[in-house]
Design a protein around this nucleic acid. Structure first.
Lengths: 352, 352
DNA sequence: CTAGAATAGGTTAACGATAATCCATGAACG
DNA sequence: CGTTCATGGATTATCGTTAACCTATTCTAG
């Protein structure tokens, strides 16, 4: 069928292993320049491509790293994917994407696929319900894991963003702009992520001498169809029902914030004049909305680089004793129009 | 290292090939229930995973299809990826994503990777400059290709969306709402895609008895940094410079439309009252903007399904004689607020 | 009671690439 | 002149799985 090493060797009039040495770039080829060139020429003529499966079987090294994503279209997952892939390729490995696309069973399927492909490590971009079982399987197969989101009950390094600091930054910014009645949306207190955010929120408020009673927590609407934006839209009506009406709202992420802004527009509530909105993640579109969104940016590149570095430590030394690490990177406040920080100020900065 | 079939066989007290038959689900196992269960139990106990590389080497079938994407974050590419992957998995194959992320050299790299992985076919979601050489390589390796975008100089089936019909639908809709001075943005007439759109635009106008002089074509701003939205933002200023000011604008795609709407907001031009905006693609966010975007939706699911069906015809019969097909699917107009269909339309017609 | 299925399972030779080992040839050296 | 070594290249075992081909036992029909 396809040309093999044997074909190339025959064409060049040498033995297979000589061809092998040359074509894979052996550092000590012990092959004369002439022979080398004859082999390269033959390979080119026959359009030879090495069979990775055969190589992997023989060498036992797959040079493949799995990337597991719960839902690429949400938040910064796609940006993470890009950054992680780039970092992995920089180390000479290929990448296998397992995109569960919101279906928890697929998560398990991909964990098994990674194992069957002899992946040397796995990067978790985001998870879905039931991730624990899938990742425990990887643990059992001794495949090192690094995650960009907090993980529970799984042996893995974690490189995540400090959500508490993020919430603190956002809240403090609103307080400094004079807001006192700030609402925070949340999707359920049970997740550690959410608890962290809430803690940062409270710390900023009390640090500013603000009573927590004026800072209502709004439970996200449980609607699931229509995606994350739709949840934001539905939840915004709860926000609008509050009396007295808050003057600012901290959203769980940018997509929710976009949904909220849509409902506010529908209700005739102007952003930022009547309601300041802050998001989380700094997704691409956030900067390009009619009212650009103030948000907390995640240091995606750095996160990816550090995560991949940790993973390769374990890949290169499978017996590494280092206990699982948890690294929290600092997020960054990105001020745009949606919180009402003076537009003159923004222009001033842009001019600099 | 990892447990192999031999380990399982030894544990169960049978020969390797008996274990192989059972574990891969041979339709004619000729293995007693008792033995079968002993093998399954042993596999479970030893956490056996088959080695796909060994299997592929032996069977010569990789059951892998490559997916090549120029830039996942743009337009409907991510949705396409999801739909295509789903369709491929439904046929029992795995997927290999080659995400060039805007870098043309990576496109070539991934084409080679697909070949080295013995991919049985390739689905092209979108392309970048220089795709031709990469795909010709796949042609030479006799790997069948199906593309979701028009391709030039490459042997491949194509399942695309009828852009002419899309432009016609959008333009006609605006005309019916009473618009007469409609601008169209374009990124250069050289691409067949763009030429098609322009043709549909003109057909709709002349079909309505509109002089083409009142329908200006605006060349997209060549800015490249900041992504597609930023280009829309920059281009919108050109639109605003026109006299008389058009009352509607047809954008190349939704991201451009989003950028345009941002600039219009900045300039104090209300959408849709003073300017109707229509996009193309119907990306997720389009429905969730403060002023939801009227747009032309691509039939992504159907496109993916038909493309994958064509591809598998060729995979299953490598000697299939059928010449490359080009299928054009009909897009669909999605009316939302940005064109003012419900309210402003009647007023404008009355005023004209 | 025996030929011939049918059943249950074992043996072994690949698949393509790699790497350890082995075999020539020629040069350098005492 | 024989030994050592460096160079250039060939032989061959092996990775884990599969599939074609055996062997041995049981069952059934005539």
């Amino acid at each position: 069928m396809a040309t093999t090493l044997k074909d190339v060797a025959r064409e060049a009039g040498v033995a297979v292993n000589t061809a092998s040495k040359v074509l894979r770039g052996d550092p000590h080829p012990m092959v004369s320049i002439k022979t080398r060139e004859r082999i390269m020429e033959a390979a080119r003529r026959l359009r030879y491509r090495h069979n990775l499966h055969a190589r992997q079987l023989r060498t036992g090294r797959s040079e493949v790293v799995g990337i597991l994503a719960g839902a690429l279209r949400e938040g910064v997952n796609l940006a993470r994917f890009q950054a992680v892939e780039h970092a992995i390729r920089a180390r000479g490995c290929r990448t296998l994407l397992g995109h569960a696309a919101g279906e928890p069973e697929l998560q398990l399927q991909f964990a098994k696929d990674f194992a069957s492909n002899m992946a040397e490590g796995v990067v978790v971009l985001s998870t879905l319900l039931g991730y624990r079982y899938s990742l425990e399987l990887l643990n059992e197969w001794r495949i090192p894991i690094v995650s960009l989101e907090p993980l529970d009950g799984v042996k893995a390094d974690v490189v995540t963003v400090d959500r508490r600091e993020g919430a603190r930054l956002a809240t403090r910014h609103l307080l400094e702009l004079g807001h006192r009645r700030i609402a925070m949306l949340h999707g359920g207190m049970k997740t550690p992520t959410m608890a962290e955010r809430h803690q940062g929120f409270r710390e900023a408020l009390t640090g500013h001498g603000c009573p927590l009673e004026e800072a209502p927590l709004i439970q996200m609407d449980p609607t699931t169809s229509g995606g994350v934006c739709a949840r934001g839209e539905a939840t915004a009506w709860r926000l609008l029902a509050l009396r007295p009406l808050p003057t600012a709202v901290l959203c769980s992420n940018d997509e929710v914030a976009i949904g909220v802004m849509k409902t506010l527009a529908e209700a005739g509530v102007r952003v930022p004049e009547e309601m300041a909105v802050v998001g989380f993640d700094d997704i691409y579109i956030a900067a390009h909305l009619p009212v650009p969104l103030t948000t907390i940016a995640q240091p995606v590149e750095e996160q990816a680089a550090r995560a991949v570095a940790l993973l390769f430590e374990r890949i290169e030394d499978p017996d590494l004793e280092r206990p699982p690490q948890v690294i929290r990177l600092a997020p960054r406040l990105v001020v745009r129009a949606s919180c009402g920080a003076s537009s003159a100020g923004e222009e001033r900065r842009a001019a600099d």
